[in-house]
């Protein structure tokens, strides 16, 4: 059914490994992003990372380093500005400036067209052999940190006041979470692209919360959807050569529409048979 290269070619092996790690991490981080109502962060942090990635391409170092530094820096900056006052304009302008800086670096690099393309929209060969180890280490760190922070972060997301009254260092927990978001964005961008990293972060959780409301089930479902999305995108990308980000966004949208219709259908049947309600 599938041609043999899909699973055996070196770049595809890397793509499968990197893609799966990214999918798992995005699903779990995305749960908290939705929980904390910070879709804006998910949208902007990868774009900050883009500037760093482009800079790294220009300086000829591993793009993951540039991506990590800029994405984490951007995430911490948003965390810092966000608590002082709700200032979306400042954050938006800083991040647009970061995008502009990314454009500058790409413009100064010779191979700018493909470079821009890979960083913005994702690439099948996005994960090179030197990056796969870094990706694995970073995603392991993020997963462990997320597991460690799990309960306090959840409580702080539900109510800052309760968390404070229980002696949780809320500020510290939130900043740690921002670092996790930054690192997640950094390893996701080479695969999915800076512009659509947001889609993989938000999409699976957005779909899952339409289907169930228990935290554990939502997490399990979004893991499933996320991995499914990335695997399908890799297969389709391999055969068509089209950008991975395109498939990720389209599959995400299809899943979302399907979940919406299921919810609508359930709602209608419940209206017909009211004794089944709640």
């Amino acid at each position: 059914m599938f041609s043999s290269g899909l699973f055996t070619e070196t770049f595809m092996v890397h793509a499968w490994m990197g893609g799966t790690m990214v999918a798992v991490l995005c699903a779990l981080v995305g749960f908290f992003v939705v929980m904390r109502d910070s879709a804006f962060v998910a949208h902007t942090v990868p774009q900050a990372g883009f500037a760093g990635g482009a800079g790294a391409v220009f300086l000829n170092v591993n793009p993951l380093y540039g991506l990590s530094v800029f994405a984490v820096g951007g995430a911490l900056l948003i965390g810092y500005l966000g608590t002082r006052e709700r200032n979306d304009v400042a954050t938006a302008l800083i991040l647009v400036a970061a995008l502009g800086t990314g454009a500058l670096f790409l413009g100064l690099t010779n191979k700018y067209a493909t470079g821009a393309y890979a960083l913005l929209f994702g690439q099948l060969v996005g994960v090179s052999s030197e990056q796969i180890v870094t990706t694995a280490i970073l995603s392991l760190i993020c997963l462990l940190a997320l597991a460690f922070l799990y309960r306090p972060l959840l409580l702080a997301s539900v109510s800052k006041e309760i968390a404070q009254s229980r002696g949780i260092p809320v500020r510290w927990v939130e900043m740690c979470f921002m670092v996790i978001v930054g690192l997640t964005a950094a390893i996701t961008v080479p695969v999915v692209g800076a512009l659509l990293c947001f889609s993989l972060l938000i999409g699976p959780t957005a779909v899952s919360i339409l289907l169930t409301s228990s935290s554990e089930k939502v997490m399990a479902l979004s893991l499933l959807f996320s991995v499914l999305t990335v695997w399908l995108s890799l297969i389709l990308g391999y055969y068509s050569g089209w950008p991975i980000g395109f498939f990720v966004s389209i599959i995400g949208a299809i899943l979302y529409l399907a979940a919406r219709s299921i919810k609508l259908f359930r709602y209608k049947t419940r209206a017909l048979f009211p004794h089944h309600a709640r």
């Binding site: 929209f121 659509l196 889609s199 957005a206 089209w242 995400g252 949208a253």
Partner: peptide
């Protein structure tokens, strides 16, 4: 604006943009 469906629509716009830009270069 905080509705997640807005985000989904936006990501479709970006996805389509990415596809056509790819086709342009190709």
């Amino acid at each position: 604006e905080r509705d997640l469906s807005t985000g989904i629509v936006l990501s479709v716009a970006l996805g389509v943009e990415s596809l056509f830009l790819y086709l342009d270069t190709h």
